[in-house]
Amino acid sequence: MKKLILGTAILALSAGIASASEVVRMGTEGAYPPYNFINDAGEVDGFERELGDELCKRARLTCEWVTNEWDSIIPNLVSANYDTIIAGMSITKERDEVIDFTQNYTQPDPSGYLALTGSDPDLKGGIIAAQTGTIQAAHIASSGATLVEFATPDETIAAVRNGEADAVLADDAYLRPIAEENDDLEMLKKTELLGGGVGMGLRESDRDLRAKFDAAIASMKADGSLNKLIMKWEIGPGF
């Protein structure tokens, strides 16, 4: 009897904690400014941090930020180490088969090439760097150019600098600040229109949570606050 009472008490207690404040763990990479990065204080910062906090406020959820390697970001979502992926992840068919996406919160933004200033690389037959498991990497692999992959976006830039790759293909918003601050690097004119915009990734079984975030994103689109954030972090065209 005593055990039973204790058992129900624990159950009630844990149920109480769960309902009092539903904690949603937001998984991000933390290495892809301006989308998400670790700031000097060691916290997750960037466009998606502000966006995610606002979405959680509107959906009345308590959110906790977690960083995870890009490589294993989908497997760790699926095995429930966190509940959402909010990491500049473009919506694609292949990913949609494994996880679900909310509606896009950025417009499909052309990806750009970054190369050494004045180098004029051969984009069809040269060596192009990209981060592993991105739409850009998939694009290069099918384009005929030689693809070299790196685990982090930062390493792709380093590869261009030390001559390992002729150019790097990545989101324009990521490459542009780097090109502007470094005289030895420049954006090429050619762009590639890839992906269907960035959305939040969720487990396919988490339909309620997806509906909540979908509604929150829709309300941010409607009142223009999403556009303000996109402008502030220079993510590309607004809605």
Binding site: G30, P33, P34, N39, D45, G46, I157, P177, I178
Partner: peptide, 11 residues
């Protein structure tokens, strides 16, 4: 993470 190059806009 710390060693990677950092642009002035974000740090």
């Amino acid at each position: 993470e710390l060693g990677g190059s950092k642009t002035a806009r974000f740090t």
